[in-house]
Design a protein around this nucleic acid. Structure first.
Lengths: 139, 139
DNA sequence: GGAAGGTAGATGCGATATACATCTAGATGA
DNA sequence: TCATCTAGATGTATATCGCATCTACCTTCC
């Protein structure tokens, strides 16, 4: 998933180094949406994206469209124009094999990230509780 | 935790909107380190930061020092110069009360993020498994 | 027929952030 | 005195973000 290949890890380990410059968590969400829906155009994705978003940051239309083009440039999705039923033509996207793989990589990255975050949370919470216990005892 | 106040949520809910432009997850880690160590200078934090990092992206020296100055500018940490034992003087940081609160906010944000990520992972994994079951059955 | 409004996609651009290199400067040691 | 280590800070090209704006098609309604 890194935009540029990570120099710290082996080629096939999906490290989270690339999160350094993450595309606002939108890339994995787009991939997941296409996995669910099979095929969709940017506009429809946009409206449903929020429900599957990882953060509660509002996903930017511009970011979405740019992410789709970026994914296509990397062969993760493929698009085709379709006549719109009532409305302008729409560019309909679907996942490619590589895209499915890319999503799996993202899954590993997010799994690790999720784990390290919950570890962080546990640790910080415990420290706060211990601190509180100590001060209440002292009083 | 957002660098600029979020316009989508109430003032006191620590939303993850600010993650849009996250400081590479380094801010919470620095706060946590200071919670653990009580007091430390940038140089020492740097060497131990990696163990507590959320991602396996290497934390940048420059990012660390800038984050510390940023935290201090916002009143989350406080620094004082100390004579170094063998070596140049060091700027020693400690958490302020506001910093502790800031860490608690981060904790909530990361907790939510961790949860939505693991939900994402479960969903994507299940979809992959279902897909695999279907194709093996068809064969 | 033409103005208004909704659908769909794309672009422009200033402000920030990131990554990486470089710089200052005191202390130590050969 | 020259190199090296410790400690902190800065410079800068490039990438990304956020927000506004633009094109263009289609439908509806006056």
């Amino acid at each position: 998933m890194p935009r540029k290949i990570c120099v710290h890890h082996s080629r096939d380990y999906p490290c989270s180094c690339g999160l350094g410059n993450l595309y606002r968590f939108v890339e994995p969400v787009v991939l997941r949406m296409l996995q669910i829906k099979g095929r969709s155009c940017g506009y429809n994705l946009c409206s449903e994206l929020q429900e599957h978003a990882l953060t509660d940051a509002e996903i930017d239309k511009a970011a979405l469209y740019r992410t789709l083009r970026h994914l296509e440039a990397n062969g993760h999705v493929k698009s085709a124009w379709e006549e719109g039923e009532g409305g302008p033509a729409r560019r309909v996207y679907r996942l490619t094999k590589e895209g499915e793989k890319h999503l799996e990589e993202w899954t590993v990255v997010l799994e690790n990230l999720s784990r390290s975050m919950s570890r962080f949370v546990r640790g910080a919470r415990k420290a706060i509780a211990d601190q509180a216990a100590k001060t209440s005892k002292a009083a």
